[in-house]
Computed example of a mutant assay.
Amino acid sequence: MPATCSVVIPTFNAAHVIGHQLGALADQVDTPAFDVVVADNGSTDDLAGAVDQWTDRLDVRVVDASRGRGVSVARNVGIERAQTDRILICDADDVVAPTWVRAFADALDVHHLASGPAETVSLSGPSAGWVPIDQLSTGLYETWGGRTYGLGGNTAMRREVWERVGGYDEGFPAGAEEIDFAWRAWDLGYRFAYVPDALLHYRIRTDLRGVLRQQYNSGRGTATLYAKFRPPEVVPKSALRRAHHELLLLRRFPWRGSGDARRMWLTLMAFEAGKLTEARRLGCPAP
């Protein structure tokens, strides 16, 4: 039976975890026919061997997405190579719920763009408490001006959206590239629909260094987003207010708090550092 939707998985050196995601896709409930495109962004591990183990249960193939580095490149190549015009995007290190494909396939009958909830505890353990992300989301994420977006690794869209938006910006820092895509889609009149049954089990880095790097990149992406769009409702802090803000953050170090409280403080500081560093590089105020 021909595929009616395509699952795109941008991937880099994920041979050790992608089996969990492919297994979840193989176990989908009441699902329409779909194909899976693993977009390899230049992996040096045995990704092909890990994927080959699932070819008897999934219509899955690996495509070369190494023409540039980054998740946006891999997503764009994966979407280009997908067999259908209905695109479902997830990441190699996460795990989708059994109703994920069906929920998104049904949503795309009505909507052009959709996302669903994310749960962080089951794959992340204690590190789920280190970052300022809801451990179980209950709606779309919101940015400046009430603009909403979905996680890049839990997105469904019709191909025409991707084409009209111009794909994911391959020069955008990882960490907010999906917000950039959502803002450009918003300007064209596309709005995310929220699909409660499209649940994603999201993996936060389980080592502190990885979490800090992730938050630093998110800060860089936030600064880039402001520099690119300059939303009028955002008033950057003056140099004096910025210094006061950073001093307050430093004073909030939880000297008497738990180890998790200190790790949470460090992730906040990593986000601020990324934001300030990228704003300085771009020559614009930090939001």
Results as ranks from 00 to 15, higher is better:
P132R: 15
T31I: 05
A114V: 11
D45A: 08
L136K: 14
Y190K: 14
W183S: 08
L47R: 07
A239E: 15
A239Q: 12
L266W: 06
C284Y: 06
A270G: 04
V211I: 02
T84C: 04
G68D: 14
N154K: 03
S72E: 11
G150V: 12
A273C: 10
A103C: 12
D91L: 01
A105H: 14
T4D: 04
F271C: 05
G49M: 02
L22Q: 13
L108T: 13
I204F: 11
L188M: 15
V17K: 12
E163Q: 12
K228C: 04
H112D: 15
T224P: 03
D180Y: 01
S66H: 06
V235L: 01
G146V: 12
D45T: 09
F181Y: 13
R102K: 12
A74G: 08
L123C: 13
R164K: 15
P196A: 13
R280Q: 13
S6R: 13
A107G: 10
D180K: 00
V29P: 05
A176H: 14
Y226S: 09
S124N: 13
D46W: 12
V101S: 02
F12M: 00
R256I: 06
G145Y: 08
S218N: 01
W100P: 03
W265Q: 08
D30Q: 14
V234W: 08
S124F: 13
I9Y: 07
T138S: 14
D134I: 05
V235S: 00
R230Q: 13
A3Y: 08
R263I: 06
V73F: 15
A48L: 05
D35V: 08
P98G: 04
I133P: 08
V165F: 02
V62F: 03
C90F: 05
T99Q: 15
A114R: 01
A65V: 09
Q214I: 00
V96E: 01
L212T: 01
A114H: 02
L151M: 14
A174K: 10
Y202C: 04
A65K: 02
A182R: 01
W54E: 02
Q83M: 05
L25Y: 10
G129V: 06
T148Y: 11
L136A: 15
T206I: 06
A243W: 01
W255M: 07
F253G: 02
A286G: 10
